[in-house]
Write a protein that binds this DNA or RNA. Structure first.
Lengths: 186, 186
DNA sequence: TACGAAAGTGCAATGACTACACTTTCAAAG
DNA sequence: CTTTGAAAGTGTAGTCATTGCACTTTCGTA
């Protein structure tokens, strides 16, 4: 009973995938705002109601495989190689995260659609609390410590800045070197 | 012709004010989501169409007097007392800005309404570019400098954190002391 | 095999916002 | 004054995402 996850769940996943696929194709072809949910539902051959049972909003259709970004983020901090600072671990992780997005058309879609930009930023920022907690524990500070919360927020906020820069690596180094100096264990 | 801004403009301003007033009163009484734009328009005795000629969105009704927050922000950096660092000027300005909001009900309305929180944050963040430029010029860095952009972003982003803390002053000192250390002129 | 939860459907509604085709009002040029 | 034209306002009818409701269908399982 470990993997025989019956036809039911399979069909569900299938429907979800069909929706995400149809949506992405239509969005890429004509732009986010030029496609209505009805059209997407039709393309995936389900009702609009069903679409919203699978995805909480039109924007969510684009960010299908949200997966465990948060886990990866927290793990990067918790499981950093010995001798490395938290700030350094964050820099590396964000840099990798920014770099490994080769799908240009997809990125362009998001960047050119205000609603999607906003949604993406929000998704990313949602991990602030978890990250702040991890940082606090790892640095022996009290949970709720403002400095840790600030570091978490700043690190997450810097992502967009780094991604937008012509030379992400240099931007990341510049920014995180300063965070390093500020947050060095006193 | 300097101040005789005819009855026309006066009436316009009047209508705008009536809308903002009606909206705020209704929102405070029953909550943002429990009031429809139609109702606000009726209360101000204008049509819904007119309401949207004055305000681009329902949220905008709440932030009527947006005024020159940006100017004040940039001025705080540019006109800081001699001998004071940019970071210090930012800390002071933000602290004042956070402190001088005595209208509790108004703040509670914003904090308790996701749409308004988001709108407010966005309004605040919109000044990032102007602030970044001011910082760059004041510190003699090239315009477009990443470190300056990051400082602008972080300073703005810290506002929410500071405002949410039980002791804003201490939170601001904690955060800005670290920014100070990181961004000290090398 | 029968039962119940989960997946899906269709319809009607809500609520913000827009387009359109007006009417009214006022300022300023003639 | 009077004409005139742009700005302010109106009402209607729409679009579009999102939700509630009252279903039917489809499995997994007791």
């Amino acid at each position: 009973m470990t993997e025989a996850i019956g036809r039911r769940e399979r069909k569900k996943a299938q429907t979800r995938q069909a929706l995400a696929d149809a949506a992405l194709e239509l969005f890429l072809a004509r732009g986010f705002d030029q496609v209505g949910v009805k059209e997407i539902a039709d393309a995936a051959d389900v009702s609009v109601t069903t679409l919203f049972k699978h995805f909480p909003s039109k924007e969510a259709l684009v960010f299908d495989q949200e997966a465990d970004i948060e886990t990866a983020l927290v793990d990067a901090v918790r499981g950093r190689p010995p001798g490395h600072t938290i700030v350094d671990a964050l820099r590396k992780h964000i840099l990798v995260d920014v770099a490994e997005s080769p799908d240009d058309a997809f990125l362009r879609l998001i960047e050119s659609t205000p609603a999607l930009r906003e949604y993406s930023r929000r998704m990313w920022m949602r991990h602030e609390t978890a990250l702040a907690r991890a940082i606090a524990e790892e640095s022996g500070a009290p949970e709720e410590d403002v400095a840790c919360a600030a570091l978490a927020r700043f690190a997450l906020a810097s992502r967009e800045l780094i991604a937008a820069h012509e030379n992400p690596r240099r931007a990341a180094e510049e920014i995180f070197a300063r965070l390093e100096r500020g947050w060095r264990t006193e």
